[in-house]
């Protein structure tokens, strides 16, 4: 985990130095200043130091939890990100819930002879649709067409539903594909006959046994997907004009606000590591095979 975060910070630090142009221009905005003032600013921000010194300084501060100061907003990057973290986490959390429910529903219903091709088609379309387009279609249909949801509101639970659904649909498609495949694979295993022979009902078989087998790979995948939700939130927040990390990232990239971009890179790496850890723990609990492996170990 430390390795991933360090690697990301290092790659990001040096890659972002490749940005052409003088960071001082970003710092002063549109104003015109003398060379003297420029040199002073460069001195103050530590931009005059050798690259290696800057890098080590950044790492040193990073270890203490200091992400630096935004060029554009002149406030700590941790504050800039912190303020916008809540709406994005709400959005992503609800999207994960939606995605899992949708995937579970479609995987459980879509395994009959008639429903399987339909589920396959729906999954394919869900996976293939661009996130921002799904958002626009949902707004047209449910916002403007039926008037069920507010179109531009940013507060309240109602305003969260459409964006979360938008973010959830492509992810649900992928998870559903894997879950259905997993259920099919598990249904072919010998233990299924044993369970049946003991007189277990079909529901009990699926819920207690095959679903547990199939769930592990889907949960690993969900962890991976959370990362891509962060990328998707940039688009969804733009479509729905919501505040959040995605917007912060986009603005920082357009403004070339290097410390903020770097802060988001580090945050993404931390999130990736933490989620992977959680996913491994949960998958161990759910999949019976991993359990026995541990019991014998």
């Amino acid at each position: 985990m430390v390795l991933v975060v360090w690697g990301a910070a290092t790659l990001g630090f040096f890659a972002l130095r490749l940005i052409p142009g003088d960071p001082v221009n970003v710092l002063i905005g549109l104003g015109n200043v003398s060379t003297q003032v420029r040199d002073q600013i460069r001195e103050d921000w530590g931009l005059a130091d050798p690259l290696l010194v800057q890098y080590l300084g950044y790492l040193g501060r990073l270890v203490q939890g200091d992400l630096g100061t935004s060029y554009r907003r002149q406030q700590p990057v941790a504050d800039v990100i912190g303020q916008q973290l809540v709406p994005t986490v709400q959005l992503m959390a609800l999207a994960v819930v939606f995605a899992l429910l949708l995937a579970l529903g479609s995987a459980l219903i879509g395994r009959g002879r008639r429903t399987a091709p339909l589920a396959g088609l729906l999954e394919l379309v869900a996976v293939s649709s661009p996130t921002f387009w799904i958002g626009l279609v949902l707004i047209s249909v449910f916002g403007f067409g039926l008037g069920w949801f507010p179109v531009v509101a940013t507060v309240g639970f109602g305003a969260l539903l459409l964006p979360a659904a938008t973010l959830a649909i492509p992810v649900a498609g992928i998870i559903s594909q894997v879950l259905r495949q997993g259920l099919d694979d598990a249904a072919a295993l010998p233990f299924v006959d044993t369970v049946r022979a003991r007189g277990a009902s079909h529901t009990r078989l699926v819920v207690r046994h095959t679903l547990r087998h199939a769930a592990a790979s889907s949960i690993t995948l969900t962890g991976y997907m959370v990362g891509s939700l962060l990328g998707g939130s940039v688009l969804v927040e733009t479509v729905f004009a919501r505040p959040g990390l995605g917007r912060v990232a986009l603005n920082a990239i357009v403004d070339r606000d290097v410390p903020v971009v770097l802060g988001i890179i580090v945050l993404a790496a931390v999130a990736f590591s933490v989620i992977n850890l959680l996913v491994d723990l949960v998958a161990d609990r759910i999949d019976p095979r991993l359990e026995t492996k541990q019991a014998y170990a």
């Binding site: 990362g227 971009v261 790496a269 990736f272």
Partner: peptide, 24 residues
Amino acid sequence: SRAIEIVMAFPEFLLALIVIAIIG
């Protein structure tokens, strides 16, 4: 492999955004 692993920790879309930040 390590380098690939680290870069793969990032969602592709975010990576593309970062590249755009660098090259405009």
